[in-house]
Amino acid sequence: MTALLKHSALSGVYRMNGAKTTTVAGWEIAESFGDTSREQRQLAEGAVLVDWSHIGKLALSRGDAAAVAEQAIPGAAKAAVLGTTGNQDQVALRLTENDYQLLCQPGQEQALLEKMDQAKSTVTDSTGALACFALGGPRRDEVLERSTAVDLRRDKVVPGSVIQLTIHTIHCTLYRTENLEIITHSRTLSESLYDGLMDVGVGVGLMPAGLGTIPVSFEEEK
């Protein structure tokens, strides 16, 4: 028997848009929406939204979250609140003094979980509970400007920081890198968030793209 596939909350969107999918760590995820070169052009000139829902996501809260996060991702305990630490494969987002979100390459979440002493903090594997979008392209700020009441100017929310906010009334965690906005949010609301972003993104040419355009990496290409 072939193993069952894991699906993103956007699986319906994939189908409606004729996405070409690939399998990563058991997940069926979009490689492209038909034309990778066009997506890449859009990434260079406009804005693209890439579904990264398959990345590993762990939530830590209460207890000694910092110490437990440190076990998984060295340096996590030293991260400033609303700051981050990590490398291209994994990153610790410090949401509050005592709340963390850890993101990692697809399929790596189990390895991280095993490094942690789960008696010391409440650790929840939210890989399936949360969806994730990566928003790229020079005009992505214009999409966000129409989507949230929170000040996301680049001199206020600097690359490498994390912020919790609502985007189209949906609660999200936004991790900003030099080139991307990595937005985790409830899986159940993912299609609604997608619709909301696309709706206001029409004017700036926002389009969906696949992993072929933005592969998962938490560190900028230098």
Partner: peptide, 11 residues
């Protein structure tokens, strides 16, 4: 009034 919540089996 609010976003739609969908279960994983929606489609």
């Amino acid at each position: 009034l609010g976003p739609i919540r969908r279960t994983a089996m929606h489609h």
